[in-house]
Computed example of a mutant assay.
Amino acid sequence: MPLLEEEILHCEGCGVKLQMEDPLKLGYVPEQALQKIPVICQRCFRIKHYNEMSSATLNQDDFLRMLGSIGHTKSLVIHIVDLFDFEGSLIGGLQRFIGNNPVLLVVNKIDLLPKVTNWNKLHNWVQKQAKENGLKTEGIVLVSAKKNIGFDRLLRMVEEQRKGRDIYVVGATNVGKSTLINNLIRDFSDLEGELTTSSYPGTTLDLIKIPLDDGKSIIDTPGIVYKHRLTELVDKADLRYVLPDKPLKPMVYQLNEKQTLFFGALARFDFVKGERQSFTCYMSNAIAIHRTKLDNADKLYEEHRGELLQPPSSDKIDALPPFTRYPVRVAKGSRTDILISGLGWIKVNGEAGADIEVHVPKGVKIAVRTSLI
């Protein structure tokens, strides 16, 4: 039976309006599930209990409309980004959408970096990158939502900056937004249950308001789907290979010019010209790296993609867009990373300069930056 207007409920997992008419549409909930607390839709139930995949996401216009509504409020904005994919997960032009509201930049997944990382240098690196991307912040916090690292400092900064306002949390998909908010809920709210967390994009589908003890709210926004991130293009079953879930083990390769590295069948790195030097690869340890001669690279890819070179496997390889080539010139004396959005980055260790070509599925973002580590 349909829910009456005064009985309209929203899923406490993803925020979508609940309905009992059509099991194939978003927001479906069996009648008996309405008696449970918290009330969540069938989709969230399956993600939460069975880690089941879902293809339901909002389109880009809906995301931008929700983001634009923040500019008409007086709020504190927490912008969470993924350190593993900093340039790929940063929301471009955020200030344009949120007006004069203050921003805290929360950089998640620091647990993926080696333990010897200099955190002060990392903080300065983030500050510089944010400024170069036109993002004004009231503060930067390095955290691991998964490991609960840096959370005390975040709480202190939220208290300092909030000044009795609502808190909007914004970010791209798969940056750890829901995990972060669940931690905030435990400190600021008596709400039962928690948001749906999953490694699959589009888990949150509408604004979710979590009431705070002072009458204000934390508002979770849907994760923005950026198609320039490789994580949005691979088959969902392959996300477990691409998204690292443990500290990275950097792989160092000494390359002569005219040598190539393949990262599964997801990307290709050609050292075209330069003195012999080392390159350090920072990416999921589940990605197999293969080295070959540049002259053999085209043939190796054509004959072994989806087999020797995987992920993706042979039955999924054709779903990826064809490779596009990006030339990169690394200047002498520079400390340079080449980021492949959603896959990781390659650090150029030599100071002699290098001519490089990166091949990635069409549309995937490549960023050349000052080395993170």
Rank of each mutant, 00 (worst) to 15 (best):
P2C: 03
I8N: 07
C11D: 01
G13Y: 06
G13K: 05
C14P: 04
C14V: 01
E21R: 14
Q35A: 14
I37P: 05
P38R: 03
C44L: 07
I47C: 00
H49S: 08
S54M: 04
N59D: 15
Q60W: 10
D62M: 14
L64A: 01
R65V: 14
H72T: 06
I78V: 06
V81E: 00
D82Y: 05
F86E: 01
G93S: 10
G99A: 08
P102F: 00
V103G: 01
L105T: 06
H123T: 05
H123I: 05
V126E: 04
V126C: 03
K128V: 12
K131E: 10
N133L: 11
K136F: 09
T137K: 07
S144W: 11
I149R: 10
F151S: 06
R153M: 11
R156Q: 06
M157C: 13
V158F: 09
E160N: 01
K163W: 04
V170R: 01
A172V: 12
T179A: 02
I181L: 07
I181F: 03
N182L: 12
I185K: 07
F188H: 07
I208K: 00
G215H: 14
G215E: 12
I218M: 09
D220P: 11
R229I: 12
T231A: 03
L233D: 03
D235S: 15
K236Y: 11
Q254D: 08
G264R: 13
L266Q: 06
V272M: 01
Q277P: 00
H290Q: 12
L294K: 10
A297Q: 05
Q310T: 04
P311Y: 09
P321R: 05
F323G: 13
K332T: 09
W345F: 06
V360T: 00
V364K: 12
A367Y: 08
